[in-house]
């Protein structure tokens, strides 16, 4: 065996490594090849998301029916609290559809963030065994939530179909979903990285998202509310910059004819800008720590 026990001190390891094209074992690939690798694992993302959905409902007696039941029950609770008890529905004709679209859009982002922040920690053993781009895991989580969102949307279509009738405008929901999904991928990647290194974040996130919930105009029309309290006109411009408000608004515009009165200014533009900025920022931010996930 020529290989055993060579005096390694006799040569310069770095030069030897370079001669045979070896690379440092813990190195982060350049962003473009990382993205290419990520794309090549799309089948993994899909299968993993499917497996997770399956595992999530496997123990429940009603099975995947919970995908429909959960948003319904959620909506019922909020309707009871805000529509009936607090009476915030004044001025909005189709309050059910108004409320549901807000809750569903918000829940989509919120679940992505809270679940995504644990996506790496919960899969440590997989990460430590196999080499694959780590971003696939948060992406699979987003796909899970997108799936849930589409089920909720179908529910919403049925409700609006019964109350307002079917409309061509509905087609605009598709680009709205694409934009929100892009935003969610970005923010989930950020949460995943932060959640991996600062595990306190998963304790904190529910409070952050709940605050966000109340600031996003889900239970009431923001312009109407502000007009009520005589707020200066710049307040609505600032509030309209909130990405969640923008995504909710573009979905409502696409679904509800009477929403024009309650529209936020420039919602589509704001939604588009947020989507691209967040997606790119999230990818870069996540990738920059790629070589550090799963350590310890």
């Amino acid at each position: 065996m020529p290989t055993a026990a060579e005096p390694t001190g006799a040569t310069d390891p770095a030069a030897l490594a370079e001669r045979y094209g070896l690379s440092k074992s813990s190195i982060r690939p350049p962003l473009n090849s990382y993205l290419r690798e990520l794309w090549s694992r799309r089948q993994f993302v899909l299968s993993y998301a499917r497996a997770r959905t399956y595992a999530m409902y496997a123990g429940a007696r009603l099975g995947s029916f919970w995908q429909v039941l959960t948003p319904l029950l959620n909506a019922a609770v909020y309707y009871l609290a805000f529509g009936v008890l607090l009476g915030t529905k004044n001025g909005i004709d189709n309050y059910v559809a108004f409320l549901l679209s807000g809750i569903f859009v918000f829940t989509f982002t919120q679940r992505c963030m809270t679940e995504g922040s644990r996506s790496l920690a919960l899969n440590l053993s997989l990460i430590r065994t196999l080499h694959f781009p780590r971003a696939t895991l948060p992406l699979a989580y987003v796909l899970n939530e997108l799936n849930q969102m589409l089920v909720s949307l179908c529910l919403l279509f049925v409700i609006v179909g019964f109350t307002d009738g079917i409309s061509w405008r509905w087609l605009l929901v598709a680009p709205a979903m694409v934009l929100q999904t892009m935003f969610n991928i970005g923010i989930t990647l950020v949460c995943a990285r932060v959640g991996t290194f600062v595990s306190d974040i998963s304790q904190l996130l529910p409070f952050v998202t709940r605050t966000w919930l109340y600031a996003s105009g889900i239970f009431f029309s923001l312009p109407a509310k502000l007009a009520e309290v005589d707020a200066p006109s710049w307040v609505i411009k600032v509030l309209a910059l909130n990405p969640i408000s923008a995504y909710i608004d573009i979905v409502r515009r696409s679904l509800l004819a009477e929403h024009e009165a309650n529209e936020l200014p420039h919602a589509w533009t704001i939604a588009i800008v947020w989507s691209f900025v967040m997606l790119v920022a999230g990818l870069v931010y996540f990738w920059r720590a790629e070589d550090r996930y799963g350590r310890g």
Binding site: P13, A14, A17, Y20, G21, L22, S23, K24, S25, S26, I27, A51, A55, S125, L126, R128, T129, L130, H131, D291, R292, G294, R295, G296
Partner: peptide, 29 residues
């Protein structure tokens, strides 16, 4: 460290190709 899962405090590990680590406590799903 060879698998690239632990950062060296000093020194380097060079590898050709991607090493795969197979351990007992690395449960899958």
């Amino acid at each position: 460290a060879i698998a690239g899962l632990l950062p060296p405090a000093s020194g380097v590990v060079y590898t050709g190709g991607q090493p795969s680590l197979l351990g007992v406590n690395a449960a899958m799903m």
